[in-house]
Simulated assay, not measured.
Amino acid sequence: MNTTHRFGLALGFVLLAAIASLVAAPDLPDQFVTNWDAGGEPDGTMSTAIGLWLLPAMTAGLVGLFALLPRIDPLRENITAFRPYYDWFVVVFAAYMTLLHVGMVAFNLGYEFDFTLLVLAGMIPLFYYVGVVLEQAKRNWFIGIRTPWTLSSDEVWDRTNALGATLFKWSALVALVGLVGGYVSGQIGLAFAAMFVPLLVTAFVPVAYSYYLYRDLESGDPSAV
């Protein structure tokens, strides 16, 4: 399977979302629920005519953007080195967006379930696969943990993204435990905390690490971590 096939698969998920909209449209109310609070209660709607096509259109646009980025990156030869992993991320992302859209359609058709748990459950494999991509990513301008220090040094890039990969994978596993615990106990807040607290750590630690690593390498400190 090559890049064309993988992006075709991603677009297949977009098509699946569009088909779900077409099939469900006659049975939907005028207002389409699109937002839920932390407790899983609906707290926002929009016109069904817009709600049915917003996520499919957004996903199609992002898939197109993902297809463009490797072509315009000045370091595109580095992206070629991990291109299959990047392509599969696009597929996983499109699958996640389709899951959200089909879930919204089902909810608006009257099926009763906690949409918040569906969102969190879908995020777990997405974030885990982000870790897989970071593990493979070579220095470029669009994909990976990009700071002034990682973009200035291959070693800082490799070590920072390796750390980020580990943190994203562990965040996904912690989120999975929190999701199961929150579902069993009925405490959705636990699932939210298990998802977003590790992600906050994952977002900030690699940035700080890249700065200190670059500084130590530039100073020639043999004790650089």
Rank of each mutant, 00 (worst) to 15 (best):
T4C: 07
F7I: 06
L9K: 10
F13Q: 04
F13Y: 14
V14T: 01
V14S: 03
L16I: 15
L16F: 12
S21Q: 02
L22E: 12
L22C: 11
L22R: 14
A25F: 14
A25T: 09
A25N: 12
P26V: 09
L28W: 09
P29E: 10
D30C: 05
D30M: 07
V33R: 14
A38F: 14
G39K: 08
G40H: 10
G40C: 10
G40Y: 09
G44Q: 12
M46V: 11
G51S: 02
G51Q: 07
L52F: 07
W53L: 02
P56Y: 01
A57Y: 12
A57M: 15
G61A: 10
F66N: 02
F66P: 00
F66C: 07
A67I: 07
L68C: 11
L69S: 10
L69A: 11
R71H: 13
P74Q: 01
P74C: 03
L75A: 14
R76Q: 10
I79Q: 02
I79F: 10
R83Y: 12
R83H: 13
P84F: 11
Y86D: 03
W88L: 05
W88P: 06
W88K: 03
F93K: 11
A94W: 11
A94L: 10
A95H: 10
A95R: 07
M97W: 10
T98Q: 09
T98N: 11
T98A: 13
L99Y: 13
L100N: 15
H101Q: 12
H101V: 07
V102K: 13
A106I: 12
L109V: 07
L109G: 13
Y111M: 09
E112Q: 14
F113E: 07
F113Q: 00
T116G: 14
T116I: 15
L117D: 02
V119A: 08
L120T: 00
L120A: 04
A121M: 04
L126P: 00
F127D: 02
Y128F: 14
Y129V: 01
Y129H: 05
L134M: 14
Q136V: 05
A137N: 07
K138M: 05
R139I: 00
N140D: 03
F142W: 10
F142N: 06
I143W: 11
I145L: 09
R146T: 01
T147R: 06
P148Y: 03
P148D: 03
P148Q: 04
W149K: 04
L151F: 00
S152Y: 04
D154E: 09
E155H: 06
E155G: 02
V156A: 00
D158P: 00
N161I: 02
L163H: 08
G164I: 00
A165N: 05
T166D: 12
L167G: 08
L167T: 07
L167A: 12
F168M: 13
K169C: 06
W170E: 07
W170H: 09
V174L: 15
A175S: 15
L176N: 01
V177I: 15
G178Q: 03
G178N: 05
V184A: 15
G186F: 06
A191N: 06
A194F: 00
L199H: 04
L200R: 09
A203L: 10
P206A: 04
V207E: 08
D216G: 11
D216V: 01
D221V: 08
D221S: 12
